[in-house]
């Protein structure tokens, strides 16, 4: 067996070990994996066209034909939830990915170099954090235009301060570590010390932040749609579905709100539970 193959099996065994010792993480990982699969194969999983209306069957309660019932236009809610998973996950993952990459690099350099760069970026982050973040996201979407890429940008921007601060603090405590000096003696520039040494070491701690933020980003995107600033109807999106369904809750048509709300809640819950396990999996020091 080659060295690389040994490495792979030991990684797989390590992941299994973590999951076995931590059933909550195992459930969260399974749930997340299921969500991702649903998002990828959404077009093949929807029994009905998610935007085709069928007024004859409007507001039908859940039954064998429509598992989650239909909405006011007779659209199948189950199909819409499945289709929306793809959009919501896409928004959350790209937004969080964007703020993670930018935040880790900016924060990493601030923490490593310190000095004027650190002070200026630090004050900028303070200003950003002084805004009520949801209002900031609303303002950004309103100013940039009501399109999906702008929702992603707005969500990324309001997440950014946390990543900058986190990466800065984590890199700062490690910048005088012996292995940082050792890397420089081995011919690494400051740039490669930050990118190839410090940031990978900070990653396990940031994984927790990422998974918590994914849940939060989904809520945020749904929230923007809920108040009409996000994805526009008739595109299926959990936030819009909750917003539209809310009108019918008083007349006892609970399924319009309950099922998209449940999907939203479960997704956020899975991501939140994933965090600690993800850190253990990513940290080689946990492999004993």
């Amino acid at each position: 067996m080659s060295a690389a193959a040994i490495q792979r099996t030991s990684t797989a065994r390590h992941v299994l070990f973590i999951l076995r010792g931590n059933p909550v993480t195992a459930i969260a990982s399974l749930g997340t994996a299921l969500l991702v699969l649903i998002a990828i194969f959404a077009p093949f999983l929807t029994p009905y066209d998610p935007i085709a209306s069928d007024v004859a069957h409007a507001l039908a309660p859940p039954d064998a034909a429509h598992w989650a019932g239909t909405d006011q236009l007779g659209r199948d809610i189950f199909s819409r939830i499945v289709a929306a998973a793809r959009l919501d996950l896409f928004i959350a993952v790209t937004a969080v990915g964007l703020s993670f990459v930018v935040g880790a690099v900016v924060g990493g350099f601030c923490g490593y170099r310190g000095g004027r760069l650190d002070r200026w970026v630090g004050r900028f982050v303070d200003v950003l954090m002084a805004f009520p973040l949801f209002v900031l996201a609303m303002a950004l979407v309103a100013a940039l235009g009501n399109r999906m890429e702008n929702i992603i940008i707005a969500t990324a921007v309001i997440n950014l301060p946390f990543y900058i601060r986190f990466a800065r603090a984590e890199v700062n405590v490690r910048r005088n570590a012996g292995w940082v000096e050792a890397a420089r003696a081995c011919g690494d520039s400051h740039l490669s010390v930050v990118l190839r040494f410090l940031l990978p070491n900070v990653l396990p701690a940031m994984a927790v932040q990422i998974s918590l933020n994914l849940g939060w980003a989904i809520l945020n995107a749904a929230g923007l749609s809920f108040i009409g600033l996000g994805v526009q109807a008739p595109t299926p999106e959990w936030g819009i579905m909750v917003a539209e369904g809310a009108r019918f809750i008083t007349t006892g048509k609970w399924w319009l709100v309950a099922f998209p709300g449940l999907a939203l809640m479960l997704t956020v819950l899975f991501f939140n539970l994933l965090g600690d396990g993800l850190r253990d999996i990513l940290d080689p020091r946990m492999r004993t």
């Binding site: 292995w179 000096e181 050792a182 890397a183 003696a185 080689p284």
Partner: peptide
């Protein structure tokens, strides 16, 4: 490459990853 260094704390001088 001609000038290399061995550090005081063997643990602290190795990248944990």
């Amino acid at each position: 490459r001609d000038v290399q260094i061995v550090f005081q704390d063997p643990h602290d001088s190795l990248n944990p990853r």
